[in-house]
């Protein structure tokens, strides 16, 4: 189901968390709300889920105005950063919660919960309490719980933020695969651009309570709307007063059109990648090369080179 937000504004005292934000998520998409902490992306997600009431603006899900509908009547799935597991209930009862509230028949609840526990690979742990699970298992349980009552949309607030790097990477791939299987409209919040680039179909960059840019991962990386998005989406350096990606700088030994002269100050070899710190009349920058490129140019500290941005 699609999600629309129009002119959403939310203040906490004097702090403006969301400033006249518009958002359009089409049905079935996997969208990332990406931005720095305190930028408003979690607040936007909570407004969609009904956990915060906007001071102005409207939110609609599947074309229905939800602005004044309380959270428990929105039929959304929500996954919290710190799992929000019901500590006193078993894994099975946690997942069954939404179905029990909706008074579904016992047999149906059992069938549906078992199906979901299988989907998140927790069928063996159905009788455990959340305290007996690892962080990754708890978050998978929270996902199954959010999906149990077949929500119209799935909202995830920094779902992997509390997990260690390895589990996080695993769960990312797994979320992507799950979405391809279940096709529920999904919005997740993250401050990790790599996570957004890897998982999402579409990325919404949120900063200072405003949407900076909306686009596909490659759009955002290659055609950032402004310097903020450019810097946030990946490494940047400054050539001739303009921001460029360090791998988008062409290094040549001889002069070419539009190139500026520079001298290599330092070389760092990191696996297959070589980083060159270069001094120019305009200031210092760093350039990312492959080992092959660096070897062909016979770069050493002190080499004179010509630099040109290729995009």
């Amino acid at each position: 189901m699609s999600i629309q937000a129009n002119g959403v504004t939310k203040r906490f005292g004097a702090f403006v968390a969301l400033d006249d934000v518009d958002l359009d998520v089409h049905a079935g998409a996997l969208t990332a709300l990406l931005g720095p902490s305190g930028g408003g992306k979690s607040t936007l997600l909570r407004v969609i889920g009904g956990l915060e009431t906007p001071d102005a603006g409207e939110v609609s899900i599947a074309g229905r105005d939800m602005t004044r509908v309380p959270a428990h009547e929105r039929n959304v799935g929500f996954v919290f950063q710190h799992y929000a597991a019901f500590q006193h209930l078993s894994v099975f009862r946690n997942v069954a919660f939404g179905l029990e509230i909706r008074r579904r028949p016992k047999a149906e609840v059992r069938r549906r919960v078992n199906e979901l526990l299988e989907l998140v690979h927790l069928e063996e742990l159905a009788d455990r309490k959340p305290a007996q699970l690892s962080g990754g298992q708890r978050q998978r349980m929270a996902l199954a719980r959010a999906l149990a009552a077949e929500p119209s949309v799935l909202l995830l607030d920094e779902p992997f933020g509390a997990l260690d790097t390895k589990v996080r990477r695993e769960l990312r791939g797994w979320l992507r695969a799950l979405h391809d299987e279940v096709h529920v409209t999904t919005v997740f919040v993250t401050h990790d651009q790599e996570e957004a680039l890897e998982v999402a179909d579409e990325i919404v960059v949120v900063n200072n309570g405003k949407v900076e840019q909306v686009g596909s991962p490659s759009d955002l990386y290659d055609k950032p709307a402004n310097d903020f998005v450019m810097e946030f989406m990946g490494p940047v350096t400054r050539l001739g007063g303009r921001l460029v990606r360090p791998h988008d700088v062409q290094v040549t030994a001889a002069h070419v059109d539009g190139a500026v002269p520079g001298r290599v100050a330092r070389l760092q070899r990191i696996g297959f990648e070589v980083r060159a710190d270069v001094t120019t009349a305009d200031g210092d920058l760093w350039v990312q090369l492959t080992r092959g490129q660096a070897d062909t140019l016979e770069l050493t500290p002190g080499s004179d080179v010509w630099l040109r941005a290729v995009v």
Partner: peptide, 16 residues
């Protein structure tokens, strides 16, 4: 100590 996470989770799962 328990905070509001579990209560919010119950809300979005449909509990009044």
């Amino acid at each position: 100590e328990i905070g509001t996470d579990q209560e919010q989770a119950a809300r979005v799962l449909g509990a009044g």
